[in-house]
Design a protein around this nucleic acid. Sequence first.
DNA 1: CCTGCTACCTGATGGC
DNA 2: TGCCATCAGGTAGCAG
Length: 279
Amino acid sequence: MPELPEVEAVVRTLGPLVQNRRIRFVHVLHPIATKPQAASHLARFAQGRRIRTVGRKGKYVLLHLDSGLLTMHFRLDGQLLWFSNAKEFLERANQGENAVHVDLALEFGNGVLGFADRRHFGRVHAWESGEECPGLAALGVDALSPDFTASRLRKLLAASKRPLKEFLLDQTRVAGIGNIYSCEALWHAQLDPRRRANRLKPREALRLHKAIVSVLGRVLECCLHPAPDFRDPAWWFQGLETILRAYGREGKPCHRCAAPIRRIAQGSRSTYCCARCQK
DNA sequence: CCTGCTACCTGATGGC
DNA sequence: TGCCATCAGGTAGCAG
């Protein structure tokens, strides 16, 4: 489910739990989670190594090891869980009435980190270096990094003829924005999602930059208060709906001009926007 | 190179 | 209640 702010909140919460901890054992419950890599390869790769730092780029979580790294990507529904010890993990994971779905888990001395995705889109992979990971290597500038400036965005926009909405979803240009927050940023910038990227005026590009930064910043604050609780298998971010001005509000009045929010299809995905005040 | 489409999976929801 | 269609916050892979 997550876009950049959700992943950032997960990374900040995860860091203190696993940094400088040694991976004692890798439990593979659903080997699909490492495809196309072999789960046995990932297990051999990671077992015995220590996690030095936990980082993020775009929607990827990066676990930097003594040497090499693990990448985790949640796609639509992936999430993390925490068990206080191996016994608790073995008793609860995929067992019994109240089974907790887990695909893969890293066992540490202080607990067990589970990666879970019922839908099996999410992935955990092992790499000698980040450049080996094609999806990661192809990412553009991260939307929360200091390098994501208004002039950088203006140049990227100028180089693309695609509709704004599709431009924002393209992780090779700006990394981290997904379907929800692209709709939100365009609503705040009062820009029509169908406009061609290279047709924006400089002041419109500036508005879009400001909207992206402020939307992601506000959502991150919301995601950190309260912070994710990996111990609760049902945990997820709360209160995000109250921030949304366009996404999921089809037919409801625009918060700016009261015209009904429209849902349109773009690139086989839903875009929500105000037909009156987004131009 | 760029763009557009489908596949990958499972679960929730709403209409009949 | 059951059944079917549709939708879901993402990306890789492939064809043109």
